[in-house]
Design a protein around this nucleic acid. Structure first.
Length: 542
DNA sequence: TTCTGGTTGTTACC
DNA sequence: GGTAACAACCAGAA
């Protein structure tokens, strides 16, 4: 159903189910509810599976989310509640006993809801959850309105426009997508009141301390506060500097900048929907209209929002997108298993200060610059350790405050040269890449205090410092700070060799017996086989 | 079948 | 701050 039809339908009571989309502006689901019902119940359901403390997890938080992201979520909910209250409403925070969908269905029934409105969500977990609710609604005669408003475009529409498959390059995605719809930005001063909530106990948004994660050190508070209010303020501040916006080129940012990050840091707000991607996109276009020239996609600021939609679209149209096995766009690579090396990477103890500082920033802030993410992802996978990208993906997914299923998986596929990007001989140096931006090592000194007195000559390679220098800096390598877990020169060389081998066997792989070379120009999406290459391209068959 | 272009490598050299 | 060599990938277009 489109927005206009939704608006004309009337229902006595509507329930707006917030999940992502934690905002009032450009919120078509909320908009449809307020137009069509005399009473509107804005609901958020706390998911115990997402929030329950897990003492066995490698850092404070739940099994699925680190404390930084949980804090960001709670701040966002408090802000949403405050904004709804200014409109004469409030956020109804429910606690699911087990399954979130059960809690929603119960509320729909208990409050005699005639219309359910929620933002469409394309993640597999969300699709399964939402289907349980929409099935219940259909069986109960409850009208459902579920608009696309998390992304610029509707991923399903783009796939259809592209002939039933997702575009696999950014360029073809942009060509297919065209211009995004405009945001819904109508101002209004009040919402319909909430109705009778019966015997429901209405609790305020819980405090982080109430969730049982123990004492959360002040050290682990990221410098970004959650919520729509903060999102809009941050966006306006970023867009105020029109020259900066017009000249923005993503690959040129400084990954070591942390006091004033080189990007907008709006990603966590987009992740939770505190900021509408469409509103942001259109505000950027306004800035472009006021400047003589501006950068273009893929590197421009607007181009970054298109990247986001690109990954949403490919992830929606690719079965098993979040794993190697059964994923047709993913190279099959025999990654090695090495718990010791993996834990060293995860906990920021590789002995490479640039890598470790980034991983510590991740644990403390839940955010790092994009290129910093590249450095550590490359190091874990095809660059040095040759460990499975899914293991790194899990660490990022849990700890990042902007952790986003489609984008996180997409970037790990990219960085591990498993999909999208295939130039595996391009490897980030864990020494020179950071040094290029921050020769003094201020970033390292900030996140790894034990190295703060190491002279700049050695800060990226402390194991090369003479013992007298290490003693003077009160940092003995091997005691106060680890020795490198691998030799980058040798490890990266070996990784290149293995990647070459893996690629060759992917070309040979699939079903060389069944494969029909006369057919090979047609891309086969329906079976497991990849096209059979010209034998002169291949190494020895095995 | 062939060609082109691809957000974000490093080092050496000018 | 620019360029070439390094070794050589793929999807999409023609």
């Amino acid at each position: 159903m489109d927005a206009a039809t939704a608006a004309t339908a009337t229902a006595a009571a509507a329930l707006v189910w917030f999940r992502k989309g934690l905002r009032v502006h450009d919120n078509p689901a909320l908009d449809a509810a307020r137009r069509s019902a005399a009473r509107v119940y804005p609901v958020f359901v706390l998911d115990p599976r997402y929030l329950r403390s897990d003492p066995a997890a490698p850092s404070q938080g739940s099994a699925r989310a680190g404390v930084a992201r949980v804090r960001f979520l709670l701040e966002s909910l408090r802000d949403l509640d405050a904004r709804l209250r200014r409109l004469g409403s409030r956020l109804l925070v429910l606690r699911a006993r087990d399954d979130v969908s059960d809690a929603v269905c119960a509320a729909l029934k208990d409050w005699n809801i005639g219309k359910l409105c929620f933002e469409s969500d394309t993640e597999p977990y969300a699709l399964a959850r939402d289907k349980r609710v929409t099935d219940f609604a259909a069986a109960s005669g409850i009208e459902v309105f579920s608009p696309v408003s998390h992304t610029l475009f509707d991923p399903a529409e783009i796939i259809e426009k592209n002939g039933g498959r997702p575009p696999l390059t950014y360029k073809s995605f942009v060509a297919t997508a065209g211009e995004p719809p405009k945001p819904v930005m109508e101002e209004y001063s009040e919402l319909p009141p909430i109705g009778d909530t019966g015997g429901y106990e209405l609790l305020p948004v819980p405090k982080l301390e109430e969730l049982g994660y123990g004492d959360v050190s002040q050290e682990y508070i990221p410098p970004f506060r959650g919520g729509e209010t903060e999102a809009l303020k941050r966006m306006r501040e970023s867009l105020q500097d029109k020259e900066w916006v017009a000249k923005f080129e993503k690959p040129k940012g400084d990954p070591s900048a942390f006091l004033k990050p080189a990007t907008t840091v709006l990603s966590p707000y987009l992740k939770f929907g505190c900021l509408s991607a469409r509103y942001f996109y259109h505000c950027i276009q306004d800035v472009y209209r006021s400047t003589k020239t501006h950068t273009k996609p893929p590197v421009s600021l607007a181009g970054q929002l298109l990247w986001r939609d690109f990954f949403y679209t490919v992830s929606f149209g690719t079965p098993n997108f979040d794993q190697m096995e059964g994923n047709k766009i993913c190279k099959q690579i025999p990654w090695i298993e090495n718990e010791e090396l993996f834990v060293a990477w995860r906990d920021g103890r590789t002995g490479y200060p640039w890598i470790d500082a980034i991983m510590i920033q991740l644990r403390k802030w839940g955010w790092m610059h994009h290129l910093a993410r590249h450095s550590v992802a490359c190091f874990l996978t095809r660059g040095d350790l040759y460990i499975h990208w899914e293991q790194g993906r899990d660490v990022f997914e849990r700890l990042l405050i902007d952790s986003d299923w489609a984008i996180n998986n997409g970037n790990w596929l990219w960085l591990s040269c498993s999909s999208f990007f295939y130039q595996y001989h391009r490897i980030y140096s864990p020494i020179s890449f950071g040094k290029k931006y921050d020769p003094n090592g201020d970033y390292i000194r900030h996140f790894i205090p034990v190295l703060k007195d190491m002279p700049k000559e050695y800060i990226y390679e402390p194991w090369t410092a003479p013992l007298s220098v290490q003693e003077k800096a009160r940092c003995i390598v091997g005691k106060d700070y680890p020795k490198p877990v691998v030799d980058h020169e040798a490890a990266s060389k070996e990784c290149r060799r293995r990647m070459g081998e893996a690629y060759a066997s992917n070309r040979l792989g699939g079903n060389p017996v069944k494969g029909n070379s006369s057919n090979s120009s047609r891309r086969k999406f329906s079976d497991g086989g990849q096209d059979v290459p010209d034998s002169s391209m291949s190494k020895q068959p095995r």
